[in-house]
Amino acid sequence: MKIKEKIIELVLKFFASITILTTVGIIVVLLFESIAFFKSVSILDFLTDTQWTPLYSEKHFGILALVSGTFLTAAIAIAVALPIGLTIAIYLNMYAPKSFRKVLKPFLEILAAIPTVVYGFFALTIVTPFLQTIYPDLETFNSLSAGIVMGIMIIPFISSLSEDALHAVPKSLKLASFGMGATRFQTAFKVMVPAASSGIIVSIILAISRAIGETMIVAIAAGQQPQLTLDPTVPVQTITSYIVQVSMGDAPQGSIEYKTIFAAGLTLFLFTFILNSISFYIKKKYQEKYE
């Protein structure tokens, strides 16, 4: 009996440890192939070259060309999602009747449940043609359309998590502000948002992290031309869509093309790891504050 209990505990512990093995696996795989990559390409070139052309005969390995595309689309997405998401969060928390909020929140969360390949299709076949009617010079593949659609996808991340944070602010603060004659708008921006700032910041960081790791929307709608540009109307390539491009072809193991996707992946992993760690740290601190 005692032994059976012990075995069960060990098995469960092993299951939990698989998550650690996963992280170790990710780091080992990325590092292993990246080290091989950096044996043929200098880190200095990787970080300073402004062109990324591993698939051409004249090869350049400047990751900046992919990083700029990644951050350009993510920045457009956040520019869409942050004002809309935060306004929705404040509206749901301060203005909407409770019954309204109960219905609307899950409804908005559907936006996050739609497979990203569907969003990519939406961006390419509906949003881009629509934007072209306003701005005819917009190219078929561009970061604007991909960024906007990505922004729509991450609205619920910001609106839901920020609403949770606003909800966690003690109600007495809201009442105190109302009691002084403040409007809901004043109460929201002078009391509630500052008091919930850590939770709101966490939601924004997670949204950024999500945006830079997003793959299918950019792979379908943003194009495949790595270039160092801030122009949202031209095709760009992100780290993720480059990995997709190479994977769709057939890069043989051991070739430099094969290794590039791990070096690019490592770069992406580092960005999201830093963002996730910051948000985890803020979340821990903030939990202590209210407990």
Binding site: L173, A176, P194
Partner: peptide, 11 residues
């Protein structure tokens, strides 16, 4: 003006 049950200063 209103004063509440628990002190509720703003942060």
């Amino acid at each position: 003006g209103m004063v509440f049950q628990k002190p509720n200063p703003f942060p």
